[in-house]
């Protein structure tokens, strides 16, 4: 998979499954990807999209999100998420201690924490009417 593939969905949480299938299908064309690595990449994209749908677009199905995926010549996987809601700084977000979260029955922020752990590079480009979350994964062994 070196050509760019792109998917646009409405901001409905039911479409997360479609996004996961889209990423999984494109990853299946990369022979180096093992089951755990593939699941991690799918998970990170799912988390980013869920975050945008819930917090950025308030589950307004009239709004859209687009996801594009491609691999470059350096064996880096690029995933870009186009979102018309204001950008959230997922790059510098820091999650509370997990034990504290359990004690307080809190569960927010874990998705961003997963994205940070899984992706090797995270950037956010801000434009007047939209933002682009840019993720890069160096294709190698899965993280533990």
């Amino acid at each position: 998979m070196t050509n760019m593939a792109k998917l646009t969905i409405n901001c409905d949480l039911k479409n997360l499954e479609i996004i996961r299938d889209f990423i999984q299908e494109n990853l299946s064309e990369i022979p180096l990807t093992c089951d755990i690595t593939a699941n991690q990449i799918v998970l990170a994209v799912d988390e980013a999209c869920a975050n945008s749908i819930i917090h950025g677009n308030h589950c307004d199905a009239r709004k859209e999100l687009s996801v594009e995926i491609y691999k470059d010549d350096l064996n880096d996987l690029h995933i870009n998420l186009y979102d018309s809601s204001p950008a959230y700084d997922i790059k510098s977000f820091k999650m509370k201690n997990i034990k504290e979260k359990i004690k307080n029955a809190e569960n927010g922020g874990m998705g961003i924490c997963l994205i940070q752990k899984i992706m090797d590079e995270i950037d956010i480009e801000r434009y007047p009417d939209f933002c682009v979350y840019k993720f890069v994964k160096h294709l190698k062994d899965p993280i533990k």
């Binding site: 997360l16 869920a50 979260k101 359990i102 004690k103 029955a105 569960n107 927010g108 998705g111 997963l114």
Partner: peptide, 17 residues
Amino acid sequence: EYISSAGLGALMSFVEE
């Protein structure tokens, strides 16, 4: 087959209780 942070959060929310 798959769990995201939302699923883990749902499980975690009952651990303390």
